[in-house]
Write a protein that binds this DNA or RNA. Structure first.
Lengths: 179, 179
DNA sequence: AAACTATGTCAATAGTGCTGACATATTTTT
DNA sequence: AAAAATATGTCAGCACTATTGACATAGTTT
């Protein structure tokens, strides 16, 4: 047995008395668990996982982004991305296009198939959010959005602001326009 | 190459125009990513992962729960729990006590060491939440809590309600009292 | 005594992440 | 033109978390 095993059992629960915001910690845990369960079901039919979902999502949100840019958004390593991206390319959900300025770069675009899947995955999540906002007014929504944004590390909030809100362009700085 | 590969690249981004609530989907993703990064750092020092965190958290919140009850909260399988729980027991964070009524059962309790770690893990998350609620009044908080709860599958909301709010007792139905 | 239940464990597999090393093509710098 | 740096791809190996299926043990219920 390891050192420091068996002492005495503590029979009282941690509660808010301990100065911890348990209710929001736990709500956040349960909410996210169920939030991700919707797409998980669909993904299973394709033999895909959450990693595929994230890649597909951001390629659809920032078409033409490079591998390096994608790694920066996802905060994973090149090797972790490789397998997943290869599968999405092989199954025709994503296409690589050689960069026009720098031919070393591979711009990533969704195909019609990839777009359809991305929307299919987003739909149940959007519906869940819509239902959860039942009875909420515009101000309530704003409170919720501000809270979620404030939960993000400050230095990463820029990533969120850079995503297109409506029929806008593409990535920060650059400008590929639409076609 | 697989069937249905390379078609044409789509160069426009998915936007809110597609009828999807992208902003909250993405905010939720980024917020949860950073929310879990705080404890991840601490866990790494112990050679533990998120699975250990979840087990430790709920054992501290519902001391005396059985293995079966824990599986029900976490929604994982017995085999997935086994390794993680064994490590937490071997390192003296959790103790098993033979069930008083049914001696097949193993009631799970945190040790002082396990309680300390659970609090250490919850503290940065609580701080992040506290900071994110900067400038929010009681009503804003209520809006946020209602939203998060509404994001949880209805049939699972009972689990949340069963958790002790303050210096209350323990698990639904049962009553081990405090010591 | 037989059946059921709670737990533990073994073996195998999958998905996702990591590090390190190295290859190739291309661009930039010297 | 040669050298250095960059963007990407790939190979090999490892770790963690989760899965399913099968089986063992102890204890409870019928």
């Amino acid at each position: 047995m390891a050192e420091g095993a068996a002492t005495k059992p503590i029979r009282t629960a941690i509660t808010s008395d301990d100065g911890i915001d348990l209710s929001i910690i736990e709500l956040f845990f349960f909410a996210y668990r169920d939030f991700t369960s919707d797409p998980d079901q669909i993904l299973a039919d394709y033999g895909f996982g959450r990693a595929h979902h994230r890649v597909l999502h951001f390629v659809n949100r920032m078409p033409g982004l490079t591998v390096a840019e994608l790694l920066d958004v996802l905060k994973i390593t090149k090797q972790s991305l490789a397998r997943v991206l290869k599968q999405l390319i092989d199954t025709g959900h994503i296409i690589q296009v050689q960069g026009p300025r720098d031919r070393r770069q591979r711009e990533l675009y969704p195909t019609a198939k990839g777009r359809a899947l991305a929307l299919a995955l987003a739909r149940p999540q959007s519906r869940r959010i819509h239902d959860a906002l039942e009875g909420a007014n515009a101000e309530d929504r704003s409170v919720i959005e501000r809270f979620l944004k404030a939960m993000v590390n400050p230095e990463l909030r820029a990533q969120i602001d850079d995503l297109p809100a409506d029929s806008a362009g593409r990535i920060p700085g650059k400008s590929h326009g639409d076609q």
